[in-house]
């Protein structure tokens, strides 16, 4: 199980959003930190195959990110998670399950499990437009987990979750990270602090730190601020 990011860059006209990133990720949880515009979302989109790098390659066990086989083992929660307001939570998950290639029977079973896991069983038949922000976010997390992904990419997954839900979410991710690759970016440093096996920091499209929590002495947030001098942790 090896996700290889080989000298990946993304350039938009005069701006380099991601600059020659080299990484090899094995199973575990990777926390991605960086200020606004650091290139985190661009990197995540490239990892999901929905944005083509200007140069470099991304492969998982030799499978290119653009292939269907790769997408079959991928789970993705974008920062700006999209949904269909007139779908019920259950229908949305069943639709996503069909997209991910689950059979009807296994989709039903998995959807029920996930609705239970994210505490949405009671509102599963209600339209998503009636959900609160936190409920929508939990639905987003559920859809990312539908296919038991080997690579789970989460962009700001805890946004909108209350403290209790955040704790549950952290435990869930910690569990998934034991056997899979989980990459998550969050502005809540404490989320990464507690569960990330490795911390990645980006600035101006470059990877400026790649290390374990143990390599950072003291408070992670203070370390982050000291690394960058200023700027919002995002």
């Amino acid at each position: 199980m090896e996700l290889v990011i080989d000298r990946v860059s993304k350039q938009y006209k005069n701006k380099i959003a991601v600059d020659r990133i080299d990484l090899t990720l094995k199973k575990g949880i990777y926390g991605l930190l960086g200020a606004n515009g650091a290139g985190k979302t661009t990197l995540m989109r490239m990892l999901c195959g929905i944005l083509t790098p200007t140069s470099g390659t991304i492969t998982y066990n030799g499978i290119d990110v653009s292939e269907e086989e790769y997408r079959a083992i991928l789970g993705y929660l974008p920062q700006d998670f999209g949904y269909y307001p007139d779908f019920s939570g259950r229908d949305f998950l069943l639709y996503m399950a069909a997209l991910k290639g689950l059979s009807k029977e296994s989709a039903k079973k998995r959807v029920n499990e996930l609705l239970e896991l994210v505490s949405l069983t009671d509102v599963a038949k209600k339209k998503i437009k009636t959900y609160s922000g936190g409920m929508k976010q939990r639905l987003g997390i559920a859809q990312a987990l539908l296919n038991n992904p080997q690579i789970l990419i989460l962009d700001e997954p805890t946004a909108g979750l209350d403290p209790k839900e955040r704790v549950r979410f952290r435990n869930l991710i910690a569990d998934i990270g034991k056997d899979n690759i989980v990459i998550l970016s969050t502005h809540i440093v404490s989320d990464i602090d507690r569960i990330a096996d490795r911390i990645l920091m980006m600035n101006n499209g470059k990877l400026v730190f790649d290390g374990t929590r143990e390599e950072i002495s003291g408070d992670l947030e203070e370390f982050y601020l000291s690394e960058f001098g200023e700027g919002e942790v995002d």
């Binding site: 999901c48 929905i50 997408r71 991928l74 974008p78 999209g82 996503m96 997209l99 290639g101």
Partner: peptide, 20 residues
């Protein structure tokens, strides 16, 4: 799909390209 930003989840899914 682009307006609702659901394209991200669709395109990153197994059958989110030709099939969908």
């Amino acid at each position: 799909e682009h307006l609702r930003k659901t394209d991200q989840q669709i395109l990153s899914s197994k059958y989110g390209r030709k099939d969908v």
